[in-house]
């Protein structure tokens, strides 16, 4: 039992990280913590791939004349390559996530998901406001002032679109 654990402890670690990341993404109410959870989740996947590529007593994947072309003597290079790509992709996603966070913070002054959602609510779920869904839309728009974003929120039906 203990040997099994010692053999596989990295995977237990990966699983724990996946769970922590998932909890952070879905369970936390703070938008920044959600992003942190997302990064933890992705990192767990990276570690999973790197661990999988390991070869007991394997060396760097550069053909060594002494070892010959025996694949078990070398670490599998492909997962490293994949994860390098995945890290780059992950950085891209992280960049977009942070820039969205900047815009959310500028518009609402908070990272609290519940507060942001409440301020944007209204017309997003019209049945909660009864038939006068449009009235809610304008108030939500008014509350979003202080933003440098001059594009109207969804549903600002009172002014005809600028047809210029």
């Amino acid at each position: 039992m203990i040997e099994l654990f010692l053999d596989r402890y990295v995977y237990v670690f990966v699983l724990a990280l996946l769970c922590i990341g998932l909890y952070g993404m879905l369970g936390k109410g703070d938008l920044v913590k959600k992003v942190i959870g997302m990064v933890i989740f992705q990192t767990a996947i990276y570690i999973f791939f790197i661990q999988g590529s390991l070869q007991q007593d394997g060396t760097a994947p550069i053909i060594d004349p002494e070892l010959g072309s025996d694949p078990s003597a070398y670490v599998d290079p492909l997962p490293h390559l994949l994860i390098l790509t995945a890290i780059v992709v992950g950085v891209g996603v992280l960049g977009v996530a942070l820039s969205l966070l900047v815009r959310i913070y500028r518009a609402h002054g908070t990272f609290d998901e519940a507060v942001v959602a409440a301020r944007l609510a209204g017309a997003s779920e019209p049945w909660r406001r009864g038939p006068a869904g449009d009235a809610g839309e304008t108030s939500a728009r008014g509350s979003a002032d202080g933003s440098d974003d001059d594009a109207p929120d969804d549903g600002s039906p009172d002014d005809p679109a600028s047809e210029a």
Partner: peptide, 15 residues
């Protein structure tokens, strides 16, 4: 691109 609500929707979608 669709304004403040869209930014928040986009963030949720990103996660």
């Amino acid at each position: 691109l669709g304004g403040n609500r869209a930014v928040f929707a986009s963030f949720r979608y990103l996660l």
